[in-house]
Design a protein around this nucleic acid. Structure first.
Lengths: 212, 212
DNA sequence: GAATTGACATACAGTCTGAATGTATCTTCG
DNA sequence: CGAAGATACATTCAGACTGTATGTCAATTC
C-alpha cells in the first residue's frame, strides 16, 4: 500500500492519471458504446474530474483514440509474438491468422476496433492505425506466399483482412469459432493454392464483371 | 405547381412529411455522420419543425433506421434486378456480385450501410436487415454453386459478404474499382473451383489453426 | 355536425460538451 | 535554496442538443 499522498513526481502523476482514464474509458466504451458514454461518467469511474480529462486529452474523441490505439498495439503484439521472423511464408500466415482471431477474443476488442472505431474515428484514421499494426503483417505474408502472382496483392490483403474482421465479430457474437476458422482457412488456402485454372472445355464459365 | 395549402388528406400529409424527413436526414447523415447531425438541423432541412419529426419517429435513432432500411431495400432491389431466377448458380453469383458493387457506388451508401449503421443500430439489427436483403441472395448463390461441399457455407457466405463490403468501401474511398473487382472475383472463383486439393508429396503444409 | 383522432408547433427540463478560469504542486535555474 | 515558471489538475460557465409535455387546428368518424 502507498501513503495517502505519496508526493509523486509529475511524470508519475500523468502516467497514473492517463492510465486510469484510458482504463475507465475502455470499460465504459465497451459496455455502452462511444455515444452512450459521457465524460462525467468516465471521470467519475477514473476517480478524477473532467478537468483532468480535458487536460490530458483534447476532447472525448481524443481519449477514444488513445483507447483504440492501445488496443490495436495489443493485437499487433500478439500477432508478432506468434510469427517469429524466419518462419516460412505459409506457416507465418497460418500462425498469424490464428493469433489474430485469438487476440480478437479479448473482451470488447471487436466493438472497439471494428465497430465504434471506424464510425468515430473514420475509415482513414482507422486504416492508418491498422496499417501500422495488423494489416502490414497480413500483406507481407501474402506477398511472400504468392510470389509472381498476377493478382493485386494489396487489394487481396485488404479484402482478406475484412473477412478476418468479420470472423472475429461472428465469434465474438457467439458463433462457433471452429466453423469460422475453417471457413477463413478455406478461403485463404484456396486463394494461395489456386493456380490460374486451365481452360478446360465443358467447364462453367469464369466469373466476369461488367465494366463500370 | 400546387396551391399554397392544397388541403391534403392526412395520408398524403404523412407521406410527404416522412419522405421529406428521410430525404433530408439521409443527406445530412451522409455528409456529417449520425452524431454530427442534429435534429434541429434535419427538421430545418426538411422544412418542418422538430415536433413533426418526433411525431413520426420515436427518436433520432428511429429516423436513422428508416434511412438505413430504405437504403438496404434499394440495394436488394438492384441485386434482384440483376439476377433473374433461372440463371445458373455461377452466373447468378457473378451478376449479383457485380450488381452489389455497382449498387454500393450510390453516394453515401457505404457510409450509411457499412460504417454508421453497425455503430448506431448495432450488429444484430444490421444483420437482420441485411439478412432480409442482400445477404440472403449471396448465401443462396453459394449453396447452389457449392453443392455437397464439406465447408460451412453459411460462414463462408458471411465472410465473403464482409469482403464485398470492404471492396465497396475501398472503391468509394477512391481505390481503383477494377483492381478490387478482380481481387474479389479471384477470391470467389478460387473458392468455388478449389476442390479439396490432393495430398501431393513435397507440397507446403496445409494451413492449420491451433485449437482455442 | 359532434366527437375523436391525427398531424403537427411550441415550450420546457435535463444533460452533455468543451472552454475559460482559478489553484496547488512540481520543476528549473540563478 | 528560493524565486519563477510550468504542469496537473478542479471549478465554473455558456451554448447546444435530446426527448417530453402541452397546445392547436385540420381531417376523419360516427
Amino acid at each position: 500500500m502507498q501513503q495517502a499522498r505519496p508526493s509523486r513526481s509529475n511524470r508519475e502523476r500523468t502516467e497514473a492519471t492517463r492510465g486510469a482514464l484510458v482504463a475507465a474509458a475502455r470499460a465504459l466504451f465497451v459496455e455502452k458504446g462511444y455515444a452512450g458514454t459521457s465524460t462525467p461518467e468516465i471521470a467519475a469511474a477514473a476517480g478524477i474530474t473532467r478537468g483532468a480529462l480535458y487536460h490530458h486529452f483534447a476532447d472525448k474523441r481524443d481519449l477514444f483514440r488513445a483507447v483504440v490505439e492501445q488496443e490495436a498495439r495489443a493485437v499487433a503484439r500478439e500477432i508478432e509474438a506468434a510469427t517469429p521472423p524466419g518462419l516460412p511464408a505459409r506457416d507465418a500466415l497460418a500462425a498469424g491468422s490464428a493469433a489474430y482471431l485469438d487476440a480478437m477474443t479479448a473482451r470488447g476488442r471487436t466493438r472497439l476496433l471494428l465497430v465504434e472505431g471506424p464510425a468515430v474515428l473514420g475509415g482513414a484514421e482507422m486504416d492508418g492505425l491498422d496499417e501500422a499494426n495488423a494489416a502490414r503483417t497480413l500483406r507481407a505474408g501474402l506477398e511472400a506466399a504468392m510470389p509472381g502472382t498476377a493478382l493485386p496483392v494489396p487489394a487481396l490483403s485488404v479484402l482478406l483482412s475484412a473477412a478476418f474482421d468479420r470472423a472475429a465479430l461472428a465469434i465474438d457474437a457467439g458463433a462457433d469459432p471452429e466453423e469460422y476458422r475453417r471457413a477463413m482457412i478455406a478461403i485463404l488456402e484456396r486463394l494461395l493454392d489456386g493456380a490460374p485454372p486451365p481452360q478446360a472445355a465443358g467447364r462453367s464459365p469464369r466469373i466476369v464483371t461488367r465494366s463500370p
